[in-house]
Write a protein that binds this DNA or RNA. Sequence first.
DNA 1: CAAATAGGTTGCGTAACAAAACCAAATTGA
DNA 2: TCAATTTGGTTTTGTTACGCAACCTATTTG
Lengths: 165, 165
Amino acid sequence: MGRKRFADMNCSVAQSLDVLGDWWTLLIVREALFGTRTFSRFERNLGISKNILALRLENLVDQEILRRVDVGQHGTRFHYELTAKGADLITVIESLRQWSDRWVYGEGKEPVRIVDTRTGNPIPPLAIRDEAGEPMSMRNVAIEPGPGAAPATRRRFGKRDATTT
Amino acid sequence: MGRKRFADMNCSVAQSLDVLGDWWTLLIVREALFGTRTFSRFERNLGISKNILALRLENLVDQEILRRVDVGQHGTRFHYELTAKGADLITVIESLRQWSDRWVYGEGKEPVRIVDTRTGNPIPPLAIRDEAGEPMSMRNVAIEPGPGAAPATRRRFGKRDATTT
DNA sequence: CAAATAGGTTGCGTAACAAAACCAAATTGA
DNA sequence: TCAATTTGGTTTTGTTACGCAACCTATTTG
C-alpha cells in the first residue's frame, strides 16, 4: 500500500512530518536558510538527483514553505525563496543540529558553528524553558488536550524523570 | 540504487536525519516521551505495522536512543525506554509541534497543549536566543566552520532578512 | 552567434514500506 | 491448571519512493 500519510492523525508532530518527512526536504530547507536560491545550487550543494529535487521543490512551494519567483531578464529563470512559514523552521533545523552536535559528533567536533555576530560566540542551546526563561525539568511538563483535541486525552510526559535537564 | 544515506555529508543536520529520518522514527520517539514502553502499545497508539515497528525499534536501540529492557517474570517480556540521548530529542519534537501548531493547525486549534504544571500555562515557544536570553534577529546569526570542519566554509544565514523575528 | 548553463522530464532499476497471515512464548482468567 | 488471550515478533507479497542516466528546451554568457 505504499507509504502511509499522517494527515489524519490529529497530532502536530505527525502533521509536520507529513509535510517535512521526506528524506531531502529538511536539507533543502537548511540550504535555503543558508541562502541557496536556485535549482542548480541546491542540486550541487546537496548532491540530490534532479527529478527528486524538482519534486521536493514543487512540494515545498505547494506547502508555502518556499516561494517560486521569476527573476529572468529575457524569459524565465527562477529563484526559490523562503516564506515566513519556511524561515520559521529554523528552530527545527537548529534543534536537529544541536542534538547531532551533542550526541553524534560530540563536543569539539562540530562541522559548523552558529554564532552571534555581535559577540562571536556560539548561540546557546535550545531548551524547554518556563515563563521566567529558566530551563525546565520534565517533571513539571504535562500534556493536555488542546482546543482542537478529538478524544478525551490526558497524558503526562515520561511517567517519571526522563531527564533532569 | 535505493536511498542515499547522508552519513558522509559532514553536516549535523544531515547526520541527525540519517538517524531519525525514517518516516516513523520521530513518532516513535514522541510516543516514548509520552510514556509508551511496550511493543503492543506503540503498535496500537501509532497504527504502525508490526514489521516496520520491529525494524524501527531495533534501529533506535542500535542508535542508543532507546534501551531494550527485559521485564519478564517467567521468561522474556520487553520494555523500550528512552536513554538520555533519546530524551534529549524533546527539543526536536517540540519544535516540530510548535511549528505545526503555528502554521498547519493555527492558533487556537492545537490538538494538544504542553503545559507547565506549576502554572498551568502552555510553555513558551522555542526560539533562537542570545546569551541574555532574548530572541535574536537572523541578521545577527552567522554560520562558521566548526572544529570538525572539512573545507573552508564561511557562509551567512539568508543573505538578507529572512525574518525579522 | 556559439557554447555553456539553468531548469527541468522521462525511463528504468532498486530499496523501503504497508498489510496480512502466521507463529511461539508468556500471561491472564476461570 | 489449562484454555484463551496477549506479546513480540517473522515471512510473504505487493506498492511506492528514490537514485541514476539520458535527454531536452530556453536562457544567458562570451
